[in-house]
């Protein structure tokens, strides 16, 4: 479904992605793990088009998407819930979701998406009219994910959804990610919390300073000694 081949991305002279190759197949949960500055967020920005790649190719559903502008890429069915739960603080929960459905015109389809999101996150339904800025951190994260779902994406990319959340909420978010996959959405998940990520993922990639260091099934990665040492704390 998504295929990155030898992608190179630069910030000025900083070589942030070095010949990165990644594939995500339909229906999978794939996770990218790596420490701070490894290039995880840069990978997602390169895919969604907010960061231009220098060389390599990015194919989605068989079509080259690198070099296109973000709104075109979003239109093709990729959604990104960005790092740091970027919600629109002054807009209500419902307005936030409404903007997520910006590209869609069919009213009844949009209604269905609302129901789906409110079904996944009943807490959001209770807080429909509340300004998003007054939600708790966990609720804002739910809203960011919910908003990304409103476009009915084929591929949902999540950048550190568990960042700064209490342990019980982390578990809840990961459960929800599983739910979302069950409803037919492919997921590319970025996490520092490698333990949890490998627990729900099918496959994983380990990034280190812009290189893909390892790629394997999630089960094998969580058994791998080097990975255990570096990311799983033992």
């Amino acid at each position: 479904m998504l295929e990155l081949q030898n992608v190179n991305t630069f910030y000025g002279s900083i070589h942030a992605l070095k010949d990165e190759s990644i594939t995500v197949k339909e229906g999978e949960i794939v996770t990218l793990i790596g420490s701070n500055g490894a290039g995880k967020t840069t990978t997602l920005s390169s895919i969604i088009g907010t960061k231009r790649i220098k060389s390599g190719s990015i194919k989605f559903m068989g079509e080259e998407i690198s070099g296109r502008s973000p709104h075109e890429i979003v239109k093709r069915g990729i959604a990104l819930s960005p790092e740091g739960r970027l919600v629109f603080p002054d807009l209500s929960v419902e307005e936030n979701l409404r903007i997520g459905a910006y590209l869609r015109k069919d009213k009844s389809e949009i209604r269905k998406s609302y129901e789906r999101v409110y079904g996944l996150f009943p807490r959001l339904a209770e807080r429909k009219g509340q300004p998003a800025g007054t939600l708790s951190g966990g609720e804002q994260q739910m809203l960011a994910i919910g908003r990304a779902m409103m476009n009915d994406p084929k591929l949902l990319m999540l950048d550190e959804p568990s960042l700064g959340l209490a342990p019980n909420l982390v578990i809840m978010i990961f459960e929800l990610i599983r739910e979302i996959r069950k409803s037919g959405v492919t997921i590319l998940l970025i996490e520092q919390n490698a333990n949890m990520a490998l627990h729900i993922a099918d496959r994983g990639y380990v990034l280190e300073t812009g290189y893909v260091k390892l790629s394997d099934s999630a089960a094998n990665l969580s058994k791998n000694d080097a990975v255990r040492k570096a990311y799983l704390g033992g």
Binding site: V74, S81, P82, L86, I99, Y102
Partner: peptide, 23 residues
């Protein structure tokens, strides 16, 4: 209108607006 919502989104967070597919 849809325009107005999009404009507000751009003001509040251009990046997040882009992610919603707003040009």
């Amino acid at each position: 209108s849809r325009f107005g919502r999009a404009m507000k989104a751009v003001r509040e967070d251009p990046l997040a607006a882009t992610m919603a597919g707003i040009n």
